[in-house]
Computed example of a mutant assay.
Amino acid sequence: MAAVLFSGCAAVPPAAIMKPATLYEASLVNTANNQPATPAALATQLAGADVIVIGEYHGHQAAHLLQSRLQAALHRIRPEQVLALEAFDVDRQAVIDDYLAGKLGEDELIEDAAAWDNYKASYRPLLEFARHRQAPVIAANAPADVVRCVGRHGPEYLDSLSPSRRALLPESPFRDVPGYREKFFDRLGHNAHGEESGATRSRLENAYQAQLLRDNTMADQVLRSLQDYPGYQVLMVTGTFHSEQRLGITAILEQRAPGLEVVVISPVILTDDDQAPAPAAYRDQGDYIYFIQPLPERFLDEQRRNAAIKHQFSKARQQECR
């Protein structure tokens, strides 16, 4: 990724990087040289990469528009393309395949594949682009119910799965990577090696194992795709926490297949009060970054926020782990 987008050009000063003016816009930058980029120019640079991981903030219009444009630009140069999505779980692959084969309508896809609520606004363009070009689409995430139950009961829950269910998951589903634990616990507001009570610590540890299960499953699906479709390029779309700073999925891929060329593209939110961005400050986030506007605050009333969180968790508690 040391290759530059515009050979012979001097590094662009931070002021030359345009801040996005709307929620649909993203300012894409090569962190190796601080150069701005377009999806078309980026596709030219990335044509030889094995895997391109595009991080996102789920439901952000700019992220999904950039993904769609980059998907099309890459396909024009290298039509042998696989689309892998965190937004679908591995146990729904047959549903995805049926939809691609014309055996299901879109509402049937959404229902049978347990699509996320933002499917139509966020992932429909990606899936439809692939469908119209007969490109494979991979449901990459670990099954939601398995992740939830690992979060409750720990890694041992996998021992209760049927052989066919367990075969959907990687052989080593909790492979860890340096630095990831610290980042995860810091995001939760806890120390990775803190002094919490036994019950609290157990819940935190189980939550981390559930996170690793997601990352390892998505990385495994990427590697399976490369094996099933030799010579294809995999475009992996996932939440940015799973890939930024070359942690999560990215680090697992590099552990399991060191020879792969994996490119990471990560979002960075800029508020109206932020100064003109200095891309070099975000170099550790990914090989490329894209600046976007923040989404509106969901709640300003703390009681309503807490009530919404409580409602979300109460629904999860109603689902049993068998």
Rank of each mutant, 00 (worst) to 15 (best):
residue 266 S to E: 10
residue 245 Q to D: 14
residue 267 P to C: 09
residue 271 T to H: 08
residue 261 E to P: 11
residue 270 L to S: 11
residue 261 E to L: 11
residue 271 T to P: 05
residue 259 G to V: 13
residue 267 P to Y: 07
residue 259 G to F: 06
residue 263 V to G: 14
residue 275 Q to R: 15
residue 253 L to A: 03
residue 254 E to M: 12
residue 264 V to F: 03
residue 254 E to S: 11
residue 271 T to C: 00
residue 277 P to T: 04
residue 247 L to M: 14
residue 245 Q to R: 15
residue 270 L to Y: 02
residue 274 D to E: 05
residue 272 D to C: 09
residue 263 V to H: 02
residue 275 Q to G: 15
residue 251 A to M: 05
residue 269 I to D: 00
residue 269 I to V: 06
residue 278 A to M: 10
residue 247 L to P: 03
residue 272 D to I: 07
residue 251 A to I: 04
residue 246 R to Y: 07
residue 252 I to R: 12
residue 257 A to D: 01
residue 255 Q to W: 08
residue 252 I to H: 03
residue 268 V to K: 04
residue 274 D to V: 09
residue 257 A to P: 03
residue 278 A to D: 11
residue 272 D to T: 14
residue 271 T to K: 04
residue 268 V to N: 04
residue 250 T to C: 08
residue 247 L to E: 09
residue 255 Q to S: 06
residue 266 S to T: 15
residue 278 A to I: 06
residue 250 T to W: 04
residue 246 R to H: 12
residue 249 I to Q: 10
residue 260 L to Y: 10
residue 253 L to C: 03
residue 278 A to V: 14
residue 246 R to P: 06
residue 277 P to Y: 06
residue 253 L to G: 00
residue 247 L to Q: 13
residue 261 E to Y: 14
residue 272 D to Y: 13
residue 252 I to F: 08
residue 275 Q to C: 15
residue 277 P to N: 01
residue 271 T to Y: 01
residue 268 V to W: 04
residue 249 I to V: 13
residue 264 V to R: 05
residue 269 I to S: 06
residue 251 A to E: 02
residue 276 A to D: 15
residue 250 T to G: 01
residue 255 Q to H: 05
residue 254 E to L: 12
residue 275 Q to W: 14
residue 272 D to V: 14
residue 271 T to W: 01
residue 259 G to T: 08
residue 271 T to F: 00
residue 248 G to C: 05
residue 269 I to E: 07
residue 271 T to V: 00
residue 247 L to R: 10
residue 255 Q to L: 11
residue 256 R to C: 07
residue 276 A to N: 15
residue 267 P to R: 05
residue 248 G to T: 11
residue 259 G to W: 14
residue 275 Q to Y: 14
residue 271 T to E: 06
residue 265 I to M: 00
residue 265 I to V: 13
residue 269 I to P: 02
residue 249 I to F: 04
residue 261 E to W: 14
residue 260 L to I: 10
residue 276 A to L: 07
residue 249 I to G: 03
residue 273 D to T: 15
residue 248 G to M: 02
residue 255 Q to I: 08
residue 254 E to R: 14
residue 271 T to N: 03
residue 263 V to W: 04
residue 259 G to Q: 14
residue 247 L to W: 09
residue 250 T to L: 02
residue 254 E to G: 12
residue 260 L to C: 01
residue 251 A to K: 05
residue 251 A to R: 03
residue 262 V to H: 02
residue 253 L to Y: 07
residue 249 I to A: 05
residue 248 G to N: 12
residue 272 D to P: 05
residue 259 G to A: 00
residue 250 T to A: 07
residue 272 D to S: 12
residue 266 S to H: 12
residue 278 A to E: 10
residue 260 L to D: 09
residue 247 L to N: 09
residue 274 D to L: 01
residue 253 L to K: 07
residue 252 I to N: 10
